[in-house]
């Protein structure tokens, strides 16, 4: 009667996506929040078109990182101890739980990135050179950020000031992803190979996946 790792992970992903569909936290709160940030910046620094064109892509990635963290860590404050107990006693492997939650955050982040990318292009009139690389970089950033946020949420678990601490843990550690994402396009603009940067992001994603799976049981028992 025991189920496979994959079945368990998929059940968790489906649960998280269903909860998001009903609560609309990402769609109606986090996404507009990120979009309004993109709108506020030109109001503050000036609407000089060449400047906005130059900084648009970088700003996009900063907003994705800072607000994407909120998507990736939402489970730190939306899951109660009683709900965690039910999941644990259904015999769900903590590692499957990690993969499942990260996968749900990944899908939400991809949607978040796609909408914000359109908003950025519209507001900042950013040049579309190298756009063919965009899906790959979005996937890598989405995967890295969701794995990192899920891991940080499990590290902090239910301790004091948990939901406040998670973004502090995630933001500095997401820097390799930010550098990778921005430098990929910087390299393309300069006509160089961006392979190093995408490779670096891939390594970060793999490391986070391994770290999360290996530490899942340890972190669950400390909750």
């Amino acid at each position: 009667m025991r189920t496979t790792f994959r079945t368990q992970a998929m059940a968790i992903t489906k649960r998280d996506l269903m909860r998001e569909r009903r609560s609309g936290e990402v769609l109606w709160v986090t996404l507009p929040f990120g979009a309004i940030a993109l709108l506020l910046i030109p109001i503050a620094i000036g609407t000089d078109r060449p400047t906005l064109r130059a900084i648009g892509i970088g700003l996009f990635w900063v907003i994705v990182m800072l607000f994407g963290v909120l998507i990736a860590v939402r489970q730190a404050h939306t899951e109660t101890q009683a709900q965690r107990d039910v999941v644990a006693l259904a015999g769900i492997d903590p590692a499957a739980g990690y993969v499942g939650r990260a996968l749900a955050s990944f899908f939400l982040l991809i949607g978040f990135e796609a909408v914000l990318a359109v908003v950025t292009v519209a507001l900042y009139d950013v040049p579309l050179d190298g756009w063919i690389w965009m899906p790959l970089v979005m996937v890598l950033v989405g995967a890295g950020l969701s794995l990192l946020g899920t891991l940080a949420a499990s590290i902090v678990s239910t301790g004091r000031s948990a939901s406040a601490l998670v973004p502090l843990l995630v933001a500095p550690l997401s820097v390799p992803l930010l550098i990778g994402a921005t430098q990929t396009f910087e390299a393309l603009r300069l006509g160089r190979s961006s392979l190093t940067w995408t490779l670096m992001m891939t390594i970060v994603v793999l490391l986070l996946a391994i770290a999360g799976v290996l530490s899942a049981r340890t972190l669950q028992e400390s909750g």
Binding site: I155, L169, A211, S222
Partner: peptide
């Protein structure tokens, strides 16, 4: 436990 996971990750 939590700190150790963070220590390795950091």
């Amino acid at each position: 436990k939590r700190a150790a996971v963070m220590g390795v990750l950091a």
